[in-house]
Nucleic acid binder design. Structure first.
Lengths: 192, 192
DNA sequence: CTCTCTTGTCTAGCGGTGCTAGGGTCGCAT
DNA sequence: ATGCGACCCTAGCACCGCTAGACAAGAGAG
């Protein structure tokens, strides 16, 4: 019994190592550099070991995404909790979201750009993803305005943030005017 | 002399064929399916021919992107020209933009998701891209509101549209409520 | 009309990718 | 002590983007 438990622990530990290493490598050199060979070498196992934990590269991306979703939810909640008043909370949320995207580009890509084999916006969506959306909803629902469904408002506001995050990072938007763009969105979209 | 001209024409024609075929293949089966081997086979030439026209796959994506930028600008202008009043123009613009993204997902990806080796938001940005942004600016500048720079407003509004387009297509947003999301953004962001 | 030389295209191959089959080597349980 | 099952590695598949070098077709000179 105890032997099996130990092996199970070691397996779980190795799985964490794989995900952490993939994430690290992706943040350092981009997801293109995360090849199964390089990843295997970094964890000091052979390639097939990866496939005893995950179906393939896609699932590894998905695992990083779930980890990121939890962190993002925590970052957003921490930022909004420290703010006074609905509008200040929305500002804090927007800045925390964009800050997370800028600081963890690979994780953000795993979440919203790449195919991690995850299901979104459905019943069988992983809890981490639902909770990340819930974290947005908590502060954004306050400022949806009369007669506007909070979920719908959150979706729209989130889309705007996502657009800012991706376009800025891809060099499609000049990075200088980030703050006034945030202000514009918050001031006009949020109804206190 | 005339011989050289004929050859030049034929070369240009073949280049158009490459871009059109790449686009077609991408729309049919996604950009992952656009490999240099498959593309070469479809145009009935060998792989190296592609490299006598483009530096690599990236440049082919870039060529599709430029073509798409021209078409998108035209679609947006056609839609806004047929609308009466600033607010109606913004609605028409938003719908035309999202419609273009939904109908030409591969082209949209080439423009805004993939690396086509193009430079954005700078002096040496290709004319087609500048013009596509200008097409947005023409209608959005009208509703920026007092004291708000039209370019900044256009960037913010565009980011919102981009977020809607990408999140919806990637299954991150349920597609049913697309119209109320558009309405929410237009009604709150646009100042008539 | 022949010959040379440029221009253009193709075949073949390099190093890389994600993924898998099959053999071998451990260590546990009997 | 030993049989056996779990585990991991080597080797290899088909494919990727890209390129070197052989070869053929055509233009221009004599």
């Amino acid at each position: 019994m105890s032997v099996q438990e130990r092996k199970q622990r070691e397996r779980a530990e190795r799985e964490r190592l794989i995900v952490a290493t993939a994430r690290e490598l992706a943040e350092q050199q981009g997801w293109d550099a995360v090849t199964t060979r390089r990843l295997a070498e970094r964890i000091e196992y052979s390639q097939p070991v990866l496939y005893s934990h995950f179906r393939g590269k896609r699932e590894i991306i998905g695992a990083v995404a779930l980890q990121g979703a939890t962190e993002m939810a925590a970052a957003v909640r921490a930022a909004t909790a420290a703010a006074d008043g609905p509008r200040a909370r929305v500002y804090a949320l927007a800045r925390a979201y964009l800050d997370f995207a800028a600081r963890n580009p690979a994780v953000y890509d795993a979440l919203f750009q790449l195919d991690g084999g995850l299901v979104y916006a459905q019943e069988d969506t992983p809890e981490q993803l639902k909770d990340a959306f819930a974290a947005l909803l908590e502060s954004l629902g306050e400022v949806a305005g009369d007669g506007v469904h909070p979920g719908l408002f959150t979706e729209a506001f989130w889309a705007a943030l996502h657009g800012l995050a991706t376009l800025t990072r891809a060099g499609r938007l000049p990075p200088e005017d980030a703050e006034p763009r945030i202000a514009l969105l918050v001031e006009r979209l949020a109804i206190v």
